[in-house]
Design a binder for these strands. Structure first.
Lengths: 324, 324
DNA sequence: AGGCTTATACTCCCTGTGAGCATTATTGTA
DNA sequence: TACAATAATGCTCACAGGGAGTATAAGCCT
């Protein structure tokens, strides 16, 4: 994607800045796979951290460095990879050298936990239990999150701040009859973080009366936040870009494809409309074979038509994310 | 936006990577303003480079570092700023230390070229003359680009490669009756780069018979490429997020707003539908006053309703980009 | 055979939106 | 003063996309 040559032209000194200073650069990977309806992310440290490591001068590029590392780690090829975000605003106490973290989102097909450093796959929804709405709104939202959020809202001193907090909470979590918006993963995490309902917030920010941590499995540092960024990006992306197929096996039934989308989006979709959209966009082609173990009428097997990438400008493929 | 605290938890050493190495980090800004229908970008070096400079340990965050620098440079506040992309895959000959470049897109209201380092504003369409379709498809596409692109297509050795090249060219430039897609700014630049029609490609890659450089004002290094990334991002973003208003004065008429959108998108929009969409989304409110110098019937003056940001999740504001 | 599950085909209806026509309110000009 | 030019603004129409439901087909299991 970002790989033009950049030599042959001499760089002009960029004025008005002091001379460069050495800064450490970290790469962090959000590597996603979906297995039987469960979206998972590649982790280390007993599912408590995302794989990461310093970018080295020897690496040809950011992507290749990370790609090589993940592929060695998982012994599977990364089909798709895109940059997520670059962070630098961490004020880590006691560390003199500033660290820049460049995060990437990668998609792969399967998972086979491979040896090194306690690598394994952790389910998205273990880290974000409020994000899975496939079988309805999770009970923990009304039971655990909402009352604590309302405490936090009321804890604001000024009226205006209370209103702002209430609005943010209702919009992001679909309170007070508002619709659920699955794309607001990061906003929800940030809200819970601010409200002190996330272990990573630290005990200081919790409200007196309540236990602080209620929401989901924590990760070190800001890794869960980076994961939230990755999930949000992926949920947004599957709606207009055929990246889902990077998570699918070579051939699949339309229902399998649908289940994969539903796993990522955390909500169910209308089956007939889903098929209509997939087929009318010619994203897939029949293999001629059929799956037999579907439990009902055998389903035709399809494969992704890679030709779509060259046929049209892929800046507009739509997947329906609506109610079931 | 990206500002959570990250202390309080000790970082676990991330396995299997060699120890960190010092790398230089550069910040690059694509700063955009629109003045009387002309989208401009803040430049230095006589409009030949984007403002940039090393990220320093003293900076609180990436954003704040860049923001402070640009505001000093232009003496105007940056309303909006978002990260564009982080590059590292440059193989600059003769430089031992690897450089990482983090690019940002910033929007501001006005331009008043201020003193330091030949700072000034350059028109987008001077760098990308094929991108302005407001008064129809630019003649230079058919006259200069298309024939050279066809040469490049034919120059491919294998049939398959010729087909791929042809498809890319027709999709990105709307050849052979295909529609123009204003979002493909980066793809177009990359295509021209590969085809050797861009000064930055270097003379080596040009085809023998033809003069290499025909397309647009060059910039140093990959700065024009970064600008293309910024334009593409902005053109995509105005369609679903109310960022245009960051480029507008406090009060404005709907036509002024429309002209601004058209300047960015490089194409005209249907006036009545534009107004309908703006108003039904309640993005603006009347000031009660009217502009008198409009040349025809006086237009009501509007101001942006900042409340929309808190009222709803801004993940779906639509601007119509269609034919006039 | 009857029930269960899944696949697949159609239909319906509403909204969003592209596109055009018509009218109103100004300024400049013959 | 009438008329042209320029904008602003109001309204209608038609069509496509997509949300949602009904109906039928084709397997499995008991």
């Amino acid at each position: 994607m970002q790989t033009l040559e950049r030599d042959g032209i001499k760089k002009v000194a960029p004025s008005s800045f002091a001379a460069g200073q050495a800064i450490a650069v970290d790469l962090i990977a959000v590597t996603v796979a979906v297995t039987n309806g469960d979206p998972r992310v590649l982790t280390i440290e007993d599912e408590g951290a995302l794989p990461s490591g310093p970018f080295q001068v020897g690496h040809r590029s950011l992507q290749s460095g990370l790609r090589a590392w993940v592929e060695r780690q998982t012994s599977l090829p990364l089909g798709y990879m895109e940059q997520l975000y670059t962070f630098a605003d961490r004020d880590r106490a006691g560390v003199e050298q500033q660290v820049i973290s460049i995060s990437y989102l990668g998609l792969t097909r399967e998972q086979r936990a491979s040896g090194e450093s306690e690598a394994g796959w952790g389910s998205w929804y273990a880290y974000f239990p409020w994000e899975d709405h496939r079988i309805g709104t999770p009970a923990m939202i009304a039971r655990e999150l909402e009352p604590r959020l309302r405490d936090w809202i009321e804890a604001a001193r000024e009226l205006e701040q209370r209103q702002t907090r209430l609005q943010r909470a209702s919009i992001t979590f679909g309170l007070d009859g508002r619709p659920w918006n699955e794309d607001l993963v990061l906003q929800r995490y940030e809200l819970l973080f601010e409200a002190g309902l996330i272990a990573e917030s630290g005990p200081a920010s919790a409200l007196p009366g309540r236990a602080a941590t209620t929401g989901g499995r924590p990760m070190i540092l800001d890794h869960r936040r980076i994961l939230a960024t990755g999930i949000a990006r992926l949920r947004a992306k599957i709606k207009y870009h055929p990246v889902v197929f990077e998570l699918m096996p070579e051939t699949f039934t339309l229902l399998q494809l649908q289940r994969c989308v539903e796993a990522l989006a955390g909500r169910l979709v209308h089956k007939q409309n889903f098929r209509r959209l997939i087929e009318q966009q010619e994203l897939v082609e029949e293999t001629g074979q059929a799956a037999q173990d579907t439990g009902g009428r055998p389903a035709k097997l399809f494969r992704f038509r890679r030709a779509v990438f060259t046929e049209r400008a892929i800046v507009g493929t739509k997947l329906p994310i609506s109610k079931a």
